[in-house]
Simulated scan of single mutants.
Amino acid sequence: MSEPFRRGDVLAYPYLWRWQAEENSSREHGEKERPVCMILTVTDKQGLTHMLLLPISSKQPLDERDALEIPPLEMRRAGLTHYPRGWITITECNYDILERSYYLDQSQEVMGRFSEAYLEEIRKAFAPFLAQGTARVSRT
């Protein structure tokens, strides 16, 4: 990979759901790799890339307030055309550090990328949950 992943990229990642982490505090791995959206990246003074990753699912959430349905055009941009429909969860995220991650395959190809306009919609929906301080599941 020639450059780090960017905000809006859709990648494969073994996402660890908050309920899984709370159920078993020693659990480190998600059940399967799934598409995730890199919603935020910040490079610190040491050059490390801190990432927040939001999970994407083809299954409609039980509580519709937990996720945004991904519009068909954004599904195509994200490389998710094998899903008939898709939702991005906005109530939780995984936190990881790119250069130290045990979970992210840094050599993988990006599946696709959401548009800046749609990323802004996601950011606005996710911000209140991030501000509460309970949305983040640390993978470091």
Rank of each mutant, 00 (worst) to 15 (best):
F5S: 02
S115F: 05
N94H: 03
W87F: 11
L130Y: 08
R123E: 09
S2V: 12
E69Q: 15
E31Q: 12
Q132A: 14
T49M: 00
P14F: 05
T134N: 08
A117H: 04
Y13G: 04
I39C: 04
F114Q: 09
T81M: 09
T49N: 13
R27V: 02
L52F: 05
T49C: 02
R113A: 06
Q46V: 03
R136V: 14
Y95K: 14
T140A: 05
R27Y: 04
G30T: 13
L80F: 04
H29D: 15
T43F: 01
P55C: 00
V10G: 07
H82D: 13
F129N: 15
R113S: 12
T81S: 10
R6W: 00
P61C: 12
T134K: 10
I90K: 01
E23W: 09
M111S: 10
L80P: 14
Q108A: 06
Q106W: 02
P128W: 08
K59M: 06
P55L: 00
K45G: 09
H29S: 13
F5T: 04
L52V: 00
S115W: 08
E120S: 11
K45I: 01
T43V: 12
T89Q: 06
R18F: 04
I97T: 10
P35H: 11
A21Y: 02
Q46F: 00
G112R: 15
P72Y: 01
P14Y: 05
Y95Q: 14
L73P: 12
T49F: 00
L80D: 12
R34H: 06
T91I: 10
L119I: 02
I56T: 06
R34C: 08
R76W: 00
L62C: 03
Y102G: 13
G79T: 09
L119C: 08
M51P: 02
E74H: 09
I122H: 02
F5K: 05
K45Q: 14
V10T: 13
L53N: 08
K45C: 00
L73Q: 13
E23V: 00
V36Y: 00
M75C: 06
L62E: 14
A135K: 11
Q20L: 10
R27F: 01
R27A: 04
R27E: 13
R100L: 05
L16G: 10
F114C: 01
N24M: 03
T89E: 13
P35G: 12
V42C: 04
V36F: 00
Y102V: 11
E22C: 10
L53S: 03
R139N: 05
E74A: 06
Q20H: 11
L11H: 06
W87V: 07
A21E: 07
E92V: 09
T43M: 08
Y118T: 07
E121G: 06
E33T: 06
P55T: 01
G133H: 09
L11V: 06
I122N: 07
P61K: 14
A117K: 10
Y102L: 07
W19V: 15
M75R: 15
E3A: 08
R7F: 00
P4H: 11
L68K: 12
N24A: 00
I97D: 10
D66N: 15
N94D: 10
E22P: 09
E28R: 15
P4L: 04
E33D: 07
K59N: 12
E74C: 03
A127D: 14
A78C: 09
L130G: 07
G8C: 11
Q60M: 07
L54Q: 05
H29E: 15
Q20K: 12
R65N: 13
I56R: 06
S2W: 02
Q20N: 12
Y13T: 09
N94S: 02
E64I: 13
Q60D: 09
